[in-house]
Computed example of a mutant assay.
Amino acid sequence: MTEKIRGRVVRPGAVVPGIVEVDGPTILSVAEHADAGDDIILPGFVDLHCHGGGGHTFTRGDAGEAAKAAAFHLRHGTTTMLASLVSSPYELMRDATAAYLPLVDRGVLAGIHFEGPYLSAARCGAQNPEFLREPSLEELGALVRLGAGAVRMMTIAPELPGALDAIRYLAAQNVVAAVGHTDATYEQTLAGVAAGATVGTHVFNGMRPPHHREPGPVVALLDSPAIVCEFVADGIHLHDGMLRFAARATPHRGALVTDAMDAAGMPDGSYELGGQEVAVTDGVARLVRDGSIAGSTLTMDATFRRAVAAGLDLPTAAAMAATTPARALGLSDELGALEAGLRADLVVLSADLRVKRVMRAGEWI
């Protein structure tokens, strides 16, 4: 059964009045049409980096919790997402991989992202320092084999002993290696890129700051054509001016992410992340022990609105929220844009960019 959705269709480089025709789970056609209305039609959001939401978390390895967190973000337009864990003991990583594999098989999750534990102690941010350690090919191999394709991304600090070998291994296994929570020099970061890293984890945050005599990881990642750079657009992680600059410096390589924790969509109060107490005040999450930013309380529709308010046009923001992250996961031949033949994942926004309807694989949520 076909269905026609009318509105201002956001396509690569343009916004056109038109109709998206859906046939079952697939986009049949996208055509211009006058008087299509004021609704804005975007491809479904793709979130590479999310720890939870709606009071539910991905970080403990509980499949029921994970399904509820994914459902919360789906209602906000995220039709494809990775479940991000934080630095954890190997046993938790193993158990989470086994628990989330059925969710990946059913399409509830696009895969698992391990943010750590192979990270810099000097730039650990809200990661629990108790669980940080040097990369282990034995651990990685066991997780990748157990995941059978469910392990999709891992964040590593490239300056650690054994990190480059770990990045090479991940790349050879079609697992995205991301550079993040790193005190690396410019040269050490480029060595990670040369080894096969293809993503920068929430660039600027959890990294040695740039300096004109030591550019560090920020400049190395922004300037590397092979790297998709994640940005957390909440006005807390990044000033709007820095977001605008970074987006323009990385055309077709910038990706909006939420980095959300379970407090997303919930009241201010006390929460937990990786065994550490978090206080959320005015929607900003910080560790109680030292005030470090502890993820965000964002949803993808909120980060999209923030990016547009910061000065990005609709096609650029849509590419950063869907097309580019889909490509980073190797899914651009399946989703991430409003094009015939791709999966019918779309978000219908009002003129003020509020979610009205969400479709995933041709079904309204």
Results as ranks from 00 to 15, higher is better:
residue 6 R to L: 14
residue 7 G to T: 08
residue 8 R to S: 15
residue 13 G to H: 15
residue 19 I to N: 10
residue 19 I to K: 11
residue 21 E to Q: 14
residue 30 V to N: 13
residue 34 A to L: 10
residue 38 D to R: 14
residue 39 D to F: 11
residue 41 I to C: 05
residue 58 F to W: 06
residue 76 H to W: 12
residue 81 M to F: 03
residue 82 L to H: 09
residue 83 A to L: 12
residue 84 S to G: 07
residue 91 E to F: 14
residue 92 L to G: 08
residue 93 M to W: 04
residue 94 R to M: 04
residue 96 A to T: 12
residue 97 T to R: 03
residue 98 A to M: 02
residue 101 L to G: 00
residue 102 P to T: 06
residue 127 Q to V: 03
residue 130 E to M: 13
residue 146 L to P: 05
residue 149 G to W: 07
residue 152 R to A: 11
residue 153 M to N: 08
residue 156 I to G: 00
residue 157 A to E: 03
residue 157 A to Q: 05
residue 165 D to H: 04
residue 166 A to I: 04
residue 174 N to F: 12
residue 175 V to C: 09
residue 177 A to P: 07
residue 178 A to Y: 07
residue 179 V to L: 12
residue 185 T to W: 05
residue 185 T to A: 03
residue 186 Y to A: 02
residue 191 A to G: 01
residue 193 V to H: 03
residue 195 A to H: 04
residue 198 T to V: 07
residue 222 L to R: 02
residue 233 A to I: 05
residue 238 L to S: 06
residue 244 R to P: 06
residue 248 R to D: 13
residue 248 R to V: 00
residue 253 R to H: 11
residue 254 G to C: 13
residue 255 A to T: 11
residue 272 E to R: 13
residue 282 D to C: 01
residue 291 G to L: 12
residue 291 G to H: 10
residue 295 G to A: 12
residue 296 S to H: 08
residue 297 T to G: 07
residue 298 L to E: 09
residue 303 T to W: 11
residue 305 R to C: 14
residue 312 L to E: 07
residue 313 D to W: 14
residue 318 A to F: 02
residue 319 A to C: 12
residue 327 R to V: 05
residue 332 S to T: 02
residue 334 E to F: 00
residue 349 L to A: 08
residue 349 L to E: 06
residue 351 A to T: 08
residue 352 D to C: 04
residue 356 K to M: 02
residue 364 W to Q: 07
residue 364 W to K: 01
